[in-house]
Simulated assay, not measured.
Amino acid sequence: MFCDVALAERIERVEKVLIETAARAAHRRTGSGFVIPVAGGLASFADDDSPFNKVVGLGFGGVPTAAELDEIERAYAALGAPVQVELPHLADPDIALALTERGYRLESFENVLGIAIEDKYDAVTPDGVEIRPSGDDEFDIWLNLMADAVAVPDTQGVPWREEFPRDTYLTAERDAATADIARYIALRNGAIAGGAGLRTAEGIAQFAGAATAPAHRHHGIQSALLSARLADAATAGCEVGVITTQPASRSQQNAQRRGFSLLYTRAILVKHPDPTPSV
């Protein structure tokens, strides 16, 4: 699948809305935090150590001005947090130049994979595996399953640069639930074995995380969850499915086996606050 700048902008816009929705849920819960629009994107601080504390959506609405970057850096510094920018490689290259000149450092990458969604899919599952929707009545079961699975990551490929405590992960997922993410449960031989999420907007299907309990890995759970979500994305009328992975990870491998291809890479550029000067 070919990704031009227009498609990348569309994907990043949908991601921006997801991050903003989760951040505002956190603000309602804590009474603090911020969302600052900047050059077509936004800077978000949801909660202490939240995965939604980052700058997203940059690259397609002009280069941020020095004044805009000053404001963002002051906002994060006031909370003792680094500024983390997720910048697509298809973005205006002048943005990366402006950030590096201000002391931002490249710390990692993540891949955005995509697939052109067909009109219809037949969901395929291995023998003994069942994929079903997961309603609000079992949200806590789904949430704890995901947290348990994420706590024991598959070590293939480049590791995530960030690891979050269990309580932080649980809280962030509760905030993200306000963004209309459909949840799925995978059963293997009747036991809960995995879970996943799917969000659809603007014809884009976001495959919003998937995890398999360690005891059930390597039995086709991830592929079955992908298959079910592709079928539902087609039913919803989506044109493109996207998934974010770490480079060379098993998640990327599984997605590519299902027909996903690499659309673009996000560079993770970080500026840490200056340490408090000694007196």
Rank of each mutant, 00 (worst) to 15 (best):
V5A: 15
V5M: 08
E9K: 14
E12G: 01
E15L: 10
R24N: 06
H27I: 10
R29K: 07
S32R: 11
F34R: 01
V35K: 00
V35Y: 02
P37H: 04
L42C: 02
L42E: 01
A43R: 00
S44H: 08
S44W: 04
A46E: 00
D49R: 09
P51T: 04
K54P: 02
F60Q: 02
F60D: 03
F60R: 02
A67D: 14
A77L: 02
A78N: 10
G80Q: 14
P88T: 13
H89K: 05
A91Y: 00
L97R: 15
L99E: 05
G103V: 08
R105P: 00
L113E: 07
A116L: 05
D119K: 05
D119G: 12
D122P: 01
V124W: 10
V124Y: 06
E130D: 08
R132I: 08
G135E: 11
E138Q: 07
D140L: 07
I141Y: 07
W142L: 08
L143Q: 03
N144F: 15
L145W: 09
A147G: 13
A149D: 13
A151Y: 11
V152L: 11
D154M: 07
Q156R: 15
G157D: 06
V158L: 13
W160H: 14
L170H: 06
E173C: 04
E173I: 05
R174S: 07
I181F: 00
I181S: 00
I181W: 01
R183Y: 04
I185K: 03
A186G: 09
L187W: 02
N189H: 13
A191S: 07
G194Q: 12
G197F: 11
R199S: 05
E202Q: 09
A205F: 09
A213W: 12
A215D: 15
R217Q: 07
H219C: 06
S223M: 10
S227T: 08
A228Q: 12
R229V: 12
A233I: 07
A233Y: 08
E239V: 04
P247H: 03
S251I: 02
Q252F: 03
Q253E: 14
N254H: 08
L262I: 05
L263R: 07
L269T: 01
V270W: 02
V270Y: 01
P273I: 09
